[in-house]
Design a protein around this nucleic acid. Structure first.
Lengths: 280, 280
DNA sequence: GGTTACATGTCGCAT
DNA sequence: ATGCGACGTGTAACC
C-alpha cells in the first residue's frame, strides 16, 4: 500500500511525516483546523477554520477551503517546506525566494494526516489548444482566413515580433493575423494593433517598397525621407471563435478585421478515433 | 471527529461517501491510481497514475498530481458530481453547463477515501492589493505621481471608461493614469493607450482645450512632442513598481510616461518582522 | 534568470 | 448571463 495515515497526529509525527515525504518524494495531506499567514508579493491572514492542506514533494503547498476551485493560500513549486512548532503546536512553514515569500499554516487541530507515495508517469494529452488552431490555419489558410490568403511566416519565427501569422492576401497586401482560441477581448485587439505597429516599423521590404534603404536607425528621420511608416497598407485580422459587439466595433473603428473561426477541430482526429463521449 | 476514512474502499462505499458528502456539505478526498478524461472548453486525457482527487461540496472537483501547483484536471464550482461505474470500477463524473463540460476520473485503485465535515467560517484578509495602491495614490497624489498632480476621477466611476485615474497636472493638462501592482507589461501599455483614446474621443472640455484643432494625422511628429486629434494635450502615465527596458521604450515611443511606485504602503513593515499577532 | 504570451485560467464586479 | 479586468495569477517557451 502506497499510503499511510495517522489519526489526530501529534507534532512529532507531523514533523517526521512531512520531512520524510519531502525527502522521499511523497505527497502529504492533512485535514485540520488551522490558521494561515502569508506574506510576500501580497500578504494575508486567514483565521481558524477547517481546511485540506497538501504538501507536494516539489515544494508546492496548498491550503484548500471547503469551497472554491483555487486554494485560499499556497506556495508554488520550489519552496522549502518544514514543520516548526509554535508553543507546542505544529506549524507548516513554506518559504521561497524570487520572489521572497513565506506561508505559515498553524495546525491547531490536525484530524488526519496521510502520506501518499504517488507514482505518476503519465503525460497529459491535451486537445483544442491554440497551437492546434494554428496548425489548422497553417494547413487551411484559405478556409480559415479568406480566399487567396497565404502564410508567409508563422508565429515566433517572425522577425517582426511575436506575430501569430504574417501573410499576404490575394492582392499581395501584407496581413498580420492574431489568433485566439476563446472569445476575443479588447486586450486581443490591443495586441493585434501592437503587432501591426511592429510590422510597420520593421520596414519589411515588400513588393511595393522599392527603396533599398541603408538607414539602420530607429526611423527617427523626419522631413522628406520619412520611411517611418513605410508599410502603411498592412491589414490586421483577429481570428477567434467569437467576439463581443464592442470588440467588433473597436476593430472596425481601427480599420481592422474579424474572422470567426470556431470549427477548426473537426479535422483534428480521424472519425474512427472518436469515442462515445464525443457525442454526449 | 469531523473526519471519516476508508481504506481501499469499494465502489459502493465511494458512491455513498461522495453522494452524502455533496449532500451534507463535506469535502471528500481520495488517494487513488486513476485515469482522467476531460472534454469541454478544451479536451484531454491523462493515463493511469497516482493522484489526489478532491470533491468539494460546491461541485469543485480537483485532480492533483504529485507535483505542480495546479491540478492537472478539474471542474470549477457549480458542477454536479456523481459516482458512476465503469465495468464494476468506480468513476467520478463531474458535469456542468455554460460552458458544457465534463470530467471523468476512473478510480482504478482507490487507496484511501476520506470525508471531512469542514467548517470554515473565516474570511480571508488580504493586504497589498491594487486597491490599496489606488488608495495610496488617492491620498498622496503628488508623492505617488508627480508634483502638482490632482485626481479628478477615480477608477470605473469615470465616464471615459475603465480608467484607473483621471487627473490634471500642475499646468492643468489632463492626465490618464493606469496603475499596476506588478512589473508593467506590454499589455499594460496597450491598455493605457486604449484608455487614452477613449478619453480623446470623449472630447472632454478642458481649460486648455482651445477649439479648432485642425491637425488630422495621428502621431505625425517632427522630432518634438506628439500631438493628437481632438484632446491633444492629454498625458498618459503608467504607474508600476518596475518595467522592463522594452516597456519603457515602448512608452517613450508613444509619448507616454512611466512612474515607478513600489513602496506605496507606508504602514508596511519588513516581512521578517511581521507576526501573526499583527493581524489580531 | 528575465521577458513574453497562453490558459479548460479563476474570480469578482458591474451592466 | 455577459463583458471586462485583476490575479500572490501559474506555466511554458524563448533568449
Amino acid at each position: 500500500m502506497p499510503t499511510e495515515r495517522y489519526d489526530s497526529p501529534d507534532a512529532e509525527t507531523i514533523e517526521r511525516v512531512v520531512r520524510e515525504g519531502q525527502r522521499d518524494g511523497a505527497m502529504v495531506t492533512c485535514l485540520a483546523e488551522c490558521e494561515v499567514e502569508y506574506d510576500g508579493r501580497s500578504g494575508g491572514y486567514l483565521g481558524p477554520g477547517d481546511r485540506l492542506v497538501v504538501a507536494k514533494p516539489d515544494g508546492t503547498l496548498l491550503v484548500h477551503r471547503p469551497s472554491g476551485h483555487q486554494p485560499v493560500n499556497w506556495m508554488p513549486a520550489g519552496a522549502t517546506i518544514k514543520v516548526e512548532e509554535d508553543e507546542g503546536a505544529p506549524l507548516l512553514y513554506a518559504r521561497r525566494s524570487n520572489p521572497n515569500e513565506y506561508l505559515r499554516v498553524y495546525l491547531h487541530e490536525p484530524h488526519l494526516l496521510t502520506r501518499f507515495d504517488a507514482d505518476d508517469p503519465a503525460t497529459y494529452q491535451e486537445r483544442g489548444t491554440e497551437a492546434e488552431m494554428h496548425e489548422y490555419i497553417e494547413r487551411n489558410p484559405e478556409t480559415a482566413i479568406e480566399e487567396g490568403f497565404r502564410v508567409v511566416e508563422h508565429e515566433r519565427e517572425s522577425v517582426y515580433g511575436y506575430i501569430d501569422f504574417f501573410g499576404k492576401d490575394a492582392e499581395g497586401r501584407p496581413v498580420v493575423v492574431e489568433v485566439k482560441r476563446r472569445q476575443a477581448t479588447l486586450n486581443n485587439v490591443d495586441q493585434l494593433k501592437r503587432y501591426m505597429e511592429l510590422y510597420r516599423e520593421s520596414r519589411e521590404p515588400s513588393e511595393r517598397d522599392v527603396s533599398g534603404s541603408t538607414e539602420g536607425a530607429n526611423g527617427e528621420s523626419d522631413g522628406g525621407g520619412t520611411r517611418w511608416k513605410s508599410n502603411p497598407d498592412v491589414r490586421g485580422i483577429l481570428v477567434a471563435p467569437s467576439a463581443s459587439d464592442r470588440v467588433r466595433r473597436t476593430l472596425r473603428d481601427d480599420g481592422l478585421e474579424f474572422v470567426e473561426l470556431s470549427e477548426f477541430a473537426v479535422e483534428k482526429r480521424e472519425s474512427s478515433e472518436k469515442t462515445l463521449s464525443d457525442f454526449l
